[in-house]
Every structure is written in C-alpha cells, then in structure tokens.
Design a protein around this nucleic acid. Structure first.
Lengths: 354, 354
DNA sequence: TATTTTTGCGTTATCGTACACATTTTTTAT
DNA sequence: ATAAAAAATGTGTACGATAACGCAAAAATA
C-alpha cells in the first residue's frame, strides 16, 4: 500500500548537476551552461549532444545554487491604498508586512508605498515615482481603471514584473489574485434568500464615496440579480447608491415608498454604516455585506448583520507578494489568474478569522 | 507617505556575510563559524568579541547558502488515510502531491504512505515501518488516539520531526494544522438557527463506522449544544449514532416518536447518506453537514443540503507538508498550533471551491 | 627540561551555478 | 602555406556557509 513519489524523475534516481551533464556528454560545464542559457558560442553538433543528455537525465538547475550565485538583491515595492484613509486596507498592509517578515534573510528588499484611495492622482504620482526606482517587481491594487492600465503599460516597457490583486485589472498582468465578484453577488443573494424565503422587497445598497470601484460593485449587483432572475420580480429589487453621510436620509425616503423593504445587500465594506442608518430611523432588516472590519464584526456579533462575505484582503496581499518573490528568486511559476474562494462569515465562524 | 521596510535591520543597511563579521572582529571566518555553532575551540575572549560584532551587525546566516552547502536531500514521508477506503481523504492526497510538485528541484524526497482509516493496526504497522527509514520528518493524520501518541513518542526519541493535521493530537508536536471543532459545532448551530429560527426539533447525527474519531465528533456536538444552551430546551436536541447502512431504518424509527424533527446536523463527511435515507423514507428536513465530497456537492446544488462546513483537507495537508519542508530547508519557524478558519459553503460559493 | 597533549585559530575544499577569461580548434584571408 | 580572425570549448573563481585539516603556541605531563 505504499505509493512512492519524489521530486526526482522516477524513483530513487540520483539528482543530477551540471557537472554530471558535462561528463555524460563529454564537454565542459561551461559549454553545458552556454547551451542551457542559449548564450551561443557552441557548435550545432555539441548543442544537440548536450540537449539530448539534458533531456535524458531530466535535468533541472538547482534553484538554490542559482539564487546564491546571482546574489542579486531583488527590489520589490507594493502600492496599495492607505489604511489610514480607509480601514478596509489595514489587513492588506498586515499581510504585506507578514510576508516581508517571512522572507527576512532572503535577498529581497521590499518597500511599501501607499496612495489615497479617493485620489486617482495620488496613485498616478506614486506610480510614476516608483518607475524611476529600478524595481524588479511592483505589486499593486488597480483601484482606478485608466490609471492602472497606464501604469501597467509603463511597467511592461521597463521590464518590471507586475502583480495585481483585489480589484480586477483590465489588462493581462503577470499575475492577478482576486475573487469572482459576480459569483460573490450570487452568494449574497442565496444567503438572503435563505434568511427570508418569501422575500418581500430587497435593496442593493452601494456606498460610493470616491466614484471609483464602480465596476467592482456593478459586478456584484449583476450576480445578485442573476440569482433572483427566475425567482423574484426584478422590480422588487431596488438599487440604491448613497454617500456615507446620506444613508440615513436616503433609506428613510426609500422606506416611505417601499415600507415592505426588509433585506439589504451592501456591496462594500461600509456595511456597518447601513446598520447605523437603519438604527437611526428605527427600522429593522436582514443585512448581508462585505468584509471583516472591526465595526462589521461587532454588528455581526450583535446580530445586526447576518452574514459578511470575506474578501480576504490580507491573504490576497500576502499571496500576490509571495508569488512574485518566489518567482523572482526561484523561478517558480504560477497561474496568471488566481481566484480565491468566496468565504461566508457569520457570528460564529468569525472567531476563527481573527 | 512612503513607508520603508525591508528584510534587513533598520533601513538600507548592507547585508552582512560571515566574511564581514570576521573582518570586523579581526578573526577568520572559521572562528566566526565556530562561535556561531558553539563548536568550541575558541577562547572565551574571542567568543565575546565575535558575539558582540554579531549582535551589532544583526547578523543572520544566509539560508540559501546554508542549504546549498549542506546539500542534504531531506527525506520526508506522509502517512494519511487511504482515499480508496474513504473518499474524504482524496483532496488530502491531492494537496500532498501538489506540494511535492511545488518543491520539485529542491532537495527533498517525499514519499506518501497510506493506512486504512478503519484499522488502527494498519496505522501502527505503517508507522513502525517508517521509523526504520531514516526519515527527517513525518507528516501524519493522528486519527487514532493511543496509536498516534505512541508513534509520536517514538519519533521524538529518534529525533524525527513530526507534524500532524486534521485530527487534534493529544501531545505536543512540532506543528499541528487543524480546525477548532467546538467552534465548528457552534457554526453549524447558528446556521440551523438561521434556517428555522423557531426550531421544533433538531438531531445531531453521527455516522460512525470505525469507532475511531469519537473525540472529533464529540467536540462538534458539544459546540452545537453550547450554542443552543440558552435558546432551546436541550431535550429538543437528539443525538443519533448510526452506521451507514442503518441510517434509513434508524431515522425512520426516530421520526415515529419525534414527528416534529426537521433539522439535522451531520457531524461527518457522510452527510449525503442522511439525504439518501430521508429521501427513502420520504421525509424532509434542513441539513447541515461537513466537507465537499462530490456527493455532498451534488446535494448542495440540488438544495437537499443547505450548508456544508469545509474542513479544507487539501489545504491542511499541503500546509503542514510545506511548513515542514521550509522548516528543514530554510530554518523557517512556524507557530506550533495553526487553526484554520471554519468555512461555510452553500450552493453558490461552492463553485469557487472547485 | 623534554615531550606530549590540548587549545586556539587560520586555511582551504566543497556544494551547484554563472560568467569572465584563457586556450584550443577551425575557418578565412593573404 | 601561413598568419590572422573567428568560433568553439575549457578553466578558474565567486557567491556564503560549513567543517575537515593543519599548524602553531600554550598547557600539561613525564
């Protein structure tokens, strides 16, 4: 009942080094190296001979030795929204710092740069500055569409690796870590449907302060409506867009014309603001929202929010940084699109997240 | 608004090598190395001198160079239940294989060994065999209490690293990856409470074929009852224990005396068997269970299971193996107890898990 | 005092890769 | 045929940590 398996080719075969390849093909290690890296200066006949042996022995260069020799200190920067401006980004910063710590001792030098999530210009300016810093890689949140695309183009021209996460990028990057937002809308819909199967009226609430992120929220709405399309009259699903300070007023007005409104899907991490607003106008309703902000968690525990969907900003951040580091240092390969599971959080399992 | 941070001590300081330490303290690298490893043969005066410089420059050996020099091929084995006997363990095997692939090219040689989850003896025998294989580390599932503890003791004596996952170990090991089972019971309770707030009667269903795993399931039950302790008369929560082939019969009998039974918490991955049984005796009920087996997923999509709690066997497996490898190869440190979040899965977000 | 033992410390080879430089072989031009 | 140029290949060293080896000086023993 044993199943043998190892990192070498079949079974217990010796692990081959360049030296072995050289011996077996009757040339020097220098020649093998030139073949390996296509550095020319080798006759066609020899190239063939060496390549054949390479294949036969299933040679793979030792990433450890390579990284030691290169002795390059990789410069990586992360560009993410400032948690001071929007606390949603706090875990993201923590994820970055954790990863930096994890790679202490390795030849990477990582700096964290922040931009104001309400000011596209602050993103562009930071990005431009970083372009002149001879980075090997930049990991960033493509919060603003046009600006991000411009940055990506410039990075590409300079040969800087780029990785994005959280907001979906328009253009192909080396790697993107994120979530399926449409599906995440459907998940919210299913949860609300569970809570009150004979739904009266439901509101999708967008809280949009900076007029960015619009696509993000639209995708969620599409998913949400998609779930209900066969089950409920679409007219019974309202779409409301408020700025934070307008929520109470806006909800109050809406409830006057739709008194049977009793379920809310809030598409941003500001879910707790809707709780506050409802409380202010003394109404009740089932709420499903996003993200494990401290304020949201409190509402969850109190029972004023039923479910939160966890977008795992910390995991997304650390994963995208880690991938880039391992790619640079060890040549590890990753799929360019990595969709993380959509995690449902209630008052109980929230404890396992903190 | 820049926040600088790197892997070195404060700021941009040069990265020091053994050579630098030697120069700065006026001795040879050999001496420094002896100090570093307490290999003796250095005068007390010199030790002090070198240690001071070491501390001043915040020296940390380069893990890459170290691993290159040692050139040791680490032998690691995993000992997990055979997926052929219980398909719950299929993802666990996949997680192992994924991790092996990830470390192809590195100096680790990993073999996978399986035991029959219904036969403690098969676990013990496999364990004993592995003890004679000069392993550097063993990663295993401590399914059986006494047998696992015995194995742990022997491993410890031999100086073999051990890591466990999935089932909670009795004794301290180097590392354990798992879930909080008590909390996971509470999560299930909350979900059922959501589905039918005015609960009539609820059954906790244990499906226990091999008479192992008893603690596992008991913890879940405790958590479940704990959640309801203030809300519901404990007498309205039944505990039922069946073998697979008895489920239909047993449930039928129970429903005769408790016709108002309409919610079921199944504490194992065999949740779909309860669905089958209920179908057979033509009863309906809300079901919450465990694990993303193909059969369970199908029920989830059909709506015959409301929620599944995901124990992430694949992640647990790959994480524990990965941790051990990185510990052996790079000296990375990990917390000895790693509790993974308890993930709630419904018909929608299940798509993001597969 | 002579001899052995111990202690303290420096030198050097090694791991596998990469690349500059030296050397040999082949080709081309005279 | 011979010199020069070009192409092909070999050699040596560095990267950083480790540990065996060796040599001197100091300490212990005869």
């Amino acid at each position: 009942m044993i199943f043998f398996f190892n990192t070498l080719a079949q079974g217990m075969k010796k692990k081959y080094a360049i030296k072995d390849i050289a011996e077996k093909s009757g040339v020097s290690i220098g020649t093998v190296d030139r073949v390996l890296h296509n550095r020319g200066r080798v006759s066609k006949k020899t190239v063939q001979k060496v390549k054949k042996v390479l294949e036969e022995l299933d040679y793979a260069p030792n990433p450890i030795a390579r990284s030691l020799k290169s002795n390059k200190v990789y410069k990586i920067c992360t560009l993410v929204p400032d948690p001071k401006k929007d606390s949603y980004w706090e875990p993201c910063k923590i994820g970055m710092i954790d990863t930096v710590r994890e790679f202490k001792g390795f030849d990477v030098e990582i700096s964290l740069e922040f931009f104001d999530p309400s000011k596209p210009r602050s993103f562009t300016m930071a990005g431009n500055k970083l372009l002149n810093e001879n980075l090997d890689a930049l990991v960033f949140v493509p919060l603003f569409d046009k600006e991000s695309e411009r940055l990506l183009k410039k990075l590409d021209k300079k040969g800087v690796f780029s990785a994005t996460f959280n907001s979906p990028p328009r253009k192909q990057v080396y790697q993107h870590v994120g979530q399926d937002l449409f599906l995440s809308g459907r998940v919210a819909a299913k949860l609300i449907n569970n809570l009150s199967p004979v739904a009266s009226k439901i509101a999708i609430v967008h809280i949009d302060e900076a007029f960015n992120n619009a696509l993000h929220m639209q995708e969620k709405e599409n998913g949400f409506r998609d779930f209900f399309c066969a089950k409920v009259d679409q007219k019974d699903i309202l779409t409301l867009t408020f700025k934070t300070e307008e929520i109470a007023q806006g909800l109050g007005d809406t409830l006057k014309t739709h008194p049977d409104l009793d379920a809310f899907f809030v598409t941003t991490s500001k879910t707790f603001e809707v709780v506050k607003a409802l409380d202010k106008i003394e109404k009740k309703g089932k709420i499903v929202g996003y993200d494990l902000l401290p304020q949201n968690i409190e509402c969850l525990k109190k029972g004023t929010i039923e479910f939160l969907i966890h977008q795992a900003p910390k995991l997304q951040a650390s994963l995208s940084l880690k991938n880039i580091i391992e790619r640079l240092m060890f040549g590890k390969d990753f799929q360019s699109q990595q969709l993380l599971p959509i995690e449902i959080v209630n008052s109980e399992n929230v404890k396992s997240y903190i």
